[in-house]
Nucleic acid binder design. Sequence first.
DNA 1: GTTGTAATTGGAATTATTCTAAATTGAGAA
DNA 2: TTCTCAATTTAGAATAATTCCAATTACAAC
Lengths: 143, 143
Amino acid sequence: MNAKVSKSLQNRLNQKLLDKGLRPTKQRSCVYDVLLQKKDHPTADEVLIRVRKKLPSISLATVYNCLETLVDCSLVKQVNMDRSPSRYCPNLTPHAHFRCSQSGRIYDLNLREEEINLLKEFLPSGFNAEHFDLTFSGSATLS
Amino acid sequence: MNAKVSKSLQNRLNQKLLDKGLRPTKQRSCVYDVLLQKKDHPTADEVLIRVRKKLPSISLATVYNCLETLVDCSLVKQVNMDRSPSRYCPNLTPHAHFRCSQSGRIYDLNLREEEINLLKEFLPSGFNAEHFDLTFSGSATLS
DNA sequence: GTTGTAATTGGAATTATTCTAAATTGAGAA
DNA sequence: TTCTCAATTTAGAATAATTCCAATTACAAC
Ligand SMILES: [Mn+2]
Ligand SMILES: [Mn+2]
Ligand SMILES: [Zn+2]
Ligand SMILES: [Zn+2]
């Protein structure tokens, strides 16, 4: 993520916050930036550690608040796998996740519209899906 | 679930327990029976309430223990959605889930082998999936 | 500068689940 | 039949992620 892209996404954040009557704060900006810098689906604890390099006195409660705000603004997705701590992902395109059991790493699997339509065909009539959640787990070699 | 089917599945439970050197207890049998009687994906709390009709003095810890044992024996699947309490499902065939946002009800969507193969085609080379988790949410009319 | 509201903060509370240590159970040995 | 003893159950404490709360801080508008 280079500075230019990051900058324009920060502008998007400020716009969304404005739309909702929320204030653009350095905490919110920094949390968002951390998610954009390294898209490895960090947990709140991991976000805290990274943000503190810029804002040493930020609290965990604020990190949770900021993450919730970013999710409410539809800038970040909350990713839950089994019962492990929530992770956060700034990839807004429809995608599935793959978790490598060996390394614990989580990969985005971007889905084409064609594939999403296939998924929706799994639904019998009478079922209208607004969201879906698709997670694979296994072993990833290379990448 | 009629008595005959339930009986044969109980035999399956006893066999699996035996295979693992575990004891068939009335608590395990009753927890399993509760899951077979009403396949509505109850939480541990809900299982506790139902089991207590037969075994009034069973504890929540035991319900958790029994559920874990059943999962370890591959007789029950643990179903996690977002960050809500785990639910338990005795449907062993590969299936997805649909959660109705209105009612909170959870439906099994059984998948044909053909559909599962489609899912696996979502994976780029280098990714080998052992498991997948597919959950839809939206509104279900009828059913 | 004062005011007013939103945001941040540290710590307490909540909640699902797991852990611990003591009591109970029950299948097999004596 | 009684004894033995490991597995199981149990109540309650502990844990861990997250949310809540009340007090402080920040800062834009007046
Ligand atoms: Mn976390
Ligand atoms: Mn529960
Ligand atoms: Zn992602
Ligand atoms: Zn199910």
